[in-house]
């Protein structure tokens, strides 16, 4: 009886000492946590991280997105948080005076005979409601024009849900302006 009690006490003291040893070892190791508001995670540690989506600009014009307005991202989004509006606008073309022999033909007929006007797509608005986004990445993978990518915006916090409704066209414009400014400073 006393023997088993003594053994138990001895075992308890041993496991306590082992625990203290491990705690003391860890006590001497450097701090692992990042003190968030004062320090942030290094950018290379964010490789592959999915932030909210953003538009990719055309290589020749940083103000215009690659988007072709097909709406595939909007259709595939499980939460329905993407809203794309686009319109087709006719390109301006030169006005030729009609041929001498055709001057008397009615106006409608000449229009029908004329070749179809070239149109181009302009993205009117591209809105993202980040509140419902689950970051599955289906829109980015399914974009046929490669116009979407994940941003590295990770420190998002706000009191209002309105702050997470992003206008991605405006965001692109801001990014483009920042890029231009940077280039200007570089050339100076």
């Amino acid at each position: 009886m006393i023997g088993s009690k003594l053994k138990e006490t001895f075992d308890g003291v041993v496991s306590l000492l082992i625990g203290l040893k491990i705690t003391f070892k860890n006590f001497l190791k450097p701090n692992l946590t990042v003190h968030y508001p004062r320090k942030t995670v290094k950018p290379e540690e964010l490789t592959g991280y999915r932030g909210h989506i953003e538009l990719v600009p055309k290589p020749e014009n940083p103000f215009v997105p690659r988007c072709i307005g097909c709406g595939l991202c909007r259709d595939i989004c499980p939460s329905g948080c993407i809203e794309v509006r686009s319109k087709r606008i006719a390109e301006e073309k030169e006005i030729h005076t009609p041929h001498f022999g055709l001057q008397d033909t009615p106006l409608d007929l000449t229009r029908k005979v004329a070749p179809p006007q070239k149109t181009k797509i302009e993205i009117v608005s591209f809105e993202l409601n980040y509140n419902y986004c689950s970051l599955c990445g289906l829109c980015v993978q399914n974009c046929p024009a490669g116009s979407l990518r994940f941003s590295k915006d990770i420190y998002l916090a706000s009191f209002s849900s309105r702050d997470f409704e992003f206008d991605l066209l405006k965001r692109l414009e801001k990014q483009a302006q920042a890029r231009l400014k940077e280039e200007e400073e570089w050339t100076k």
Binding site: T47, G48, Y49, R50, S134, L135, C136, G137, Q141, F150
Partner: peptide, 21 residues
């Protein structure tokens, strides 16, 4: 896992016929 799947907890990494990255 974040490096390949993009998330830290609620992964959406596998796709029909493979993985996303």
């Amino acid at each position: 896992l974040q490096r390949v799947s993009g998330s830290r907890l609620t992964y959406c990494y596998y796709r029909f016929g493979g993985v996303s990255q």
